[in-house]
Amino acid sequence: MDAFTTHTGRAVPLRRSNVDTDQIIPAVWLKQVSRTGFEKGLFSAWREDPTFVLNDPSYEGASILLAGPDFGTGSSREHAVWALQQYGFRVVIAARFGDIFRNNSTKMGLLPVVLPAETVEAVQSAVEADPTLQITVDLEGREVRWADEAAGFEIDDYTRWRLTEGLDDIGLTLRAADDIASYENGRQPWLPTTI
């Protein structure tokens, strides 16, 4: 996972609520067994519509997605995160996220930023007025900055530390191998095994 400290880039406004992971990447794209090539499937049904915002050339190269509330609800498919990252997004800003999507994002280094709905809308309007607007997402300072404005966001210390260091969760957990082994010794005897 790449470390994430501060990112500055342009943004694209996606003014829709309840964008579920089936919309982010439809199921037909989930048949791949590799981890790459998912950018082509990103919002694939909507991208067929020439008026869809990602088809607007003024937003080309945007790396921050300004989404509506309840972004990433539905299926647990991490492919949604891979598709967004492989398309070029580093940050998604929304008022609310699906829990599993948010979790998956932080495992992969795609930063989910929660801001109040009014703030997200204000940034969306600012970007619509000027698509070249540069937005800075400062994870260390827990702040989003655009034009002369700034808005703080919350993220727990541990997740922030892991993201800024780019640390692999499994490696971290394996440091607790002794704890895992001793827990295993104390498990209830009737618990089932699959063998």
Binding site: S76, R77, E78, I100, N104, K107, I170, T173, I180
Partner: peptide, 13 residues
């Protein structure tokens, strides 16, 4: 439900 990174995490640990 969990994502694929977490599936790997559970498999390993």
């Amino acid at each position: 439900g969990i994502g694929t990174s977490e599936v790997e995490h559970v498999l390993a640990t």
